[in-house]
C-alpha cells in the first residue's frame, strides 16, 4: 500500500465540515418532528403532524410546481448552453474563445441576488423589455413578466447557465477531433456528423449538466422569491415564508427535509432514466 503520511491532516478539515453539516441536518430533522407552539419560538413535544400536513394539496402542488420549474429551467439552460460550450471547445480564435469564456462564466461571480435584481429591471412593467416593445409600438400595455413562472424560469436559466456551460465544455473537450474528421471523410456533412458522433459522445456531459442544473434550481431561493414575488411558490420560498413570516420552524423544517429527500429521489430517478442516454456516449 502507498504510504500517505499527510492523509490524516488533509482529511480532518473535511471530516470536521461533514460533522458540522451532519449536526445541522440532525437539528433540522429534530425540529421537523416537534409540535408548533403558536406565538412562540420554542417548540412543543414530538409529533408527526408536520409531515401529514405536507400531504395537503397546496404543498403537494408546490412540490410538483418546483419539479416542473426545475425541469423547465434545466431543459432551457441545456438548449442555450450547448452551442456556447460547443463554440468554446471548437473555436480556434484565441480572442473569441476568451470572450465566450468570460461572457459565460462571469455571471457566476455576481451572486444570485445581484443577477436577480438585474432581471427585475429587465422584466418589470417599466423594465427594459416592456419599454422597448412599447416605444416600438408593438404592444400598448406592458406584458406581465414579473411574478410569473416564465419570468422566474428566464432568470433561473441565466443563473444556471455558467455551471451548465462548464459541465458541457468538460464533456465536449474530451471528444477527439479525429472522430469528427473520420465522420466527415466517410461522407457525413456537418449536421449528420454532429447528430451521429458529437452529440452522442457528449451525452455524459449533458446528463451531468442537466442533473446539476436541476439540483441547483431546486435549492434556488432568491430568484423565485424576488421575481415570483410570492405568486410562484417553490419549496424554498415556502420554507422561507413558514419560517420567517409565520415563525413555524417545525413545519418549515419538515418541508425542507422533505424537499431534500425529494431532490435525492428525483436525481436518482433521473440518473436511472438517463442511463441509456448516457450510454450513447460510452467510450
Amino acid at each position: 500500500m502507498t504510504q500517505r503520511p499527510f492523509l490524516g491532516w488533509l482529511v480532518s478539515p473535511a471530516v470536521l465540515l461533514a460533522l458540522g453539516l451532519a449536526a445541522a441536518m440532525a437539528a433540522i430533522l429534530q425540529y421537523s418532528v416537534r409540535a408548533y407552539v403558536p406565538g412562540s419560538l420554542d417548540v412543543g413535544g414530538l409529533t408527526f403532524e408536520n409531515f401529514t400536513t405536507l400531504l395537503r394539496p397546496f404543498y403537494l402542488w408546490a412540490f410538483w410546481n418546483t419539479i416542473l420549474l426545475c425541469l423547465m429551467t434545466a431543459t432551457f439552460t441545456l438548449i442555450l448552453a450547448y452551442p456556447v460550450a460547443y463554440a468554446l471547445v471548437r473555436v480556434n480564435n484565441k480572442a473569441l474563445k476568451s470572450f465566450i469564456l468570460i461572457a459565460s462564466i462571469t455571471p457566476l461571480f455576481l451572486g444570485e441576488v445581484v443577477r436577480t435584481y438585474s432581471w427585475m429591471i429587465v422584466l418589470g412593467n417599466n423594465g427594459f423589455i416592456n419599454s422597448v416593445l412599447m416605444s416600438l409600438g408593438i404592444i400598448d400595455s406592458p406584458l406581465q413578466m414579473m411574478f410569473t413562472t416564465s419570468g422566474v424560469v428566464a432568470a433561473l436559466v441565466h443563473v444556471t447557465m455558467p455551471i451548465m456551460v462548464i459541465m458541457l465544455t468538460a464533456g465536449l473537450s474530451h471528444i477527439d477531433r479525429n472522430y469528427e474528421k473520420a465522420a466527415e471523410s466517410l461522407g457525413a456533412g456537418p449536421i449528420r456528423c454532429f447528430m451521429t458522433v458529437t452529440l452522442p459522445l457528449s451525452m455524459p456531459g449533458v446528463v451531468a449538466g442537466f442533473s446539476t442544473a436541476f439540483a441547483w434550481t431546486f435549492s434556488a431561493f432568491a430568484t423565485p422569491q424576488l421575481i415570483g414575488g410570492g405568486k410562484v411558490n417553490t419549496v424554498s420560498t415556502l420554507v422561507y415564508q413558514l419560517g420567517f413570516a409565520s415563525f413555524n420552524f417545525p413545519f418549515a423544517a419538515s418541508l425542507s427535509f422533505a424537499g431534500l429527500v425529494m431532490t435525492f429521489a428525483v436525481l436518482a430517478l433521473m440518473k436511472r432514466a438517463m442511463r441509456p442516454i448516457e450510454r450513447l456516449g460510452e467510450q
Binding site: D176, N178, Q283
Partner: peptide, 8 residues
Amino acid sequence: QNYALFPH
C-alpha cells in the same frame, strides 16, 4: 494515427 474508431 489513433484510428479514431467511433467508441460508441
